[in-house]
Design a protein around this nucleic acid. Sequence first.
RNA 1: GGCGCCGUGGCCAAGUGGUAAGGCAGAGGUCUGCAAAAUCUCCAUCACCGGUUCGAAUCCGGUCGGCGCCUCCA
Length: 492
Amino acid sequence: MALRLYNTMTNRKEDFTPLNPPKVGMYVCGVTVYDYSHVGHARPTIYFDVIFRYLKYSGYDVTYVRNFTDIDDKIIKRALELGITTTELTDKYIQAFNEDMDSLGLLHPDVEPYCTHYVPQMIEFIGSLIEKGHAYATESGDVYYRVDSFKGYGKLSGKNLEELEAGARVDVSDQKESPLDFALWKASKPGEPKWESPWGEGRPGWHIECSVMSTNNLGESFDIHGGGKDLIFPHHENEIAQSEASTGKPYARYWIHNGFINMPAEDGSGQVKMSKSLGNFLTIRDVLDAFDPEALKFLMLSTHYRKDVLFSEDRLNQSQKRVTYLYKTLEEMDRYLAEHSADGGNPIDAEKIAAIPEQFQISMDDDFNTPRAIGGLSGFFKLANDLLTAPGDHSAADIAATLAAIRAQLIPLFEVLGLLQRTPDEYLGDMTGRELKRLGIGVEEIEALLEQRTKAREAKDWVESDRLRDVLAEKGILVKDSKEGTVWSVKP
RNA sequence: GGCGCCGUGGCCAAGUGGUAAGGCAGAGGUCUGCAAAAUCUCCAUCACCGGUUCGAAUCCGGUCGGCGCCUCCA
């Protein structure tokens, strides 16, 4: 069994063979920190978090690097509008980003470099490109990459130079040799952040940042480079051109690109990409105000990473319900295990349960197929519920042994997906707390109504009992009667 | 115009050669005072046309439809 992953460079699935096993170097393009991150940004962070975890689960010694782009045109513009320094702006949004990632329960990458901390290395890198004839400085103090000088240009995106040149926009005032040449260094205008360089005061271009931060942390050649599919061209294409021209060595071996988050189109037909420029975006914190982080993760992981994900409130609700189902089942399992000993019991379906990790690996080894993995794991919650509701002829010890075995198998695998790592109490408590806040109702009020209802039920006053249940239902509270008594929860 | 992706039941979504996982919604049953929750059962021939093959959702060609990139973008 071996991991196979889809490589954008070759447009097909390939066996994953790291450069220096068991070490794996992975670089993922991070965010430009000039505003709160939206759900679209959560896609790669959530997905590469799972990839990071799965590689480690598979025994690799992974170094995961994800940068912060903290110097760029948009940052400068925004800081100017707000009348603050770019550093004040980026500090704020880096902190916000980290808070969002923590809310989502994502692991921190091993290295999270800031562009502004690598400027000397970038200057050196650019210098080497100029020396080798791959770049040139202009009179205005800009430095451009000479695209014609790199014969592999276009190999990632499947474009060729002639076509690109034919379609390129003509910029008359440009000092570039070719319209395809891109900026490595931009001369700064008065008032803008700047660094000293051999070409005058300025700042680095976008593409050079990632080439430098990746190779500085992972070496000139490394294993995996990831990001959104919109970065394939020109960003990643340019990274390859810079890096391979400079080092003469292959850059990243495997290119992994995630699909977009789509929103339902306004006219009801089809979907459109969620993006800042279209204005159809929700920030991560918007979503987390209304839904549990695991609902968002579950939604994302329910679609393969290379496909676009349809994002809607309805789907979020569905995901939330599903996560709640998983935690509630876990709660029921734990309750049963607390009351029944597994001593002397034998797991029912022992072979199937023993094969859970293998099945999981088969799914994940196939280009990180999380939808299939989730589907496989979820089936065992059904099995657990089945035993809990319809024990049949099975002994309590056998059932307890089965539940214990399922639990022991499932939880570590869900950890790879970053799901189900809280206790049922924590999850259900968090859910309830947030929902009650949203519904504007307090626990005391609910309990008071329930107390009345319990009295009515004891008196077999079903009319009053049902009336009170309706009252609670209208407030969004679900009532559930059982032998052990009445419990309530927020309507999913 | 160039490059690329996609089109599976009411909705979401796996499956890439051997006769369609899973979830949501829906129908019916069990449980319940009635409900809820849970569970059981039922519910598709894979956009269309042609081809290859003993056999295709799965490979090839074409048609129609949707989307992305080619400019900042996860």
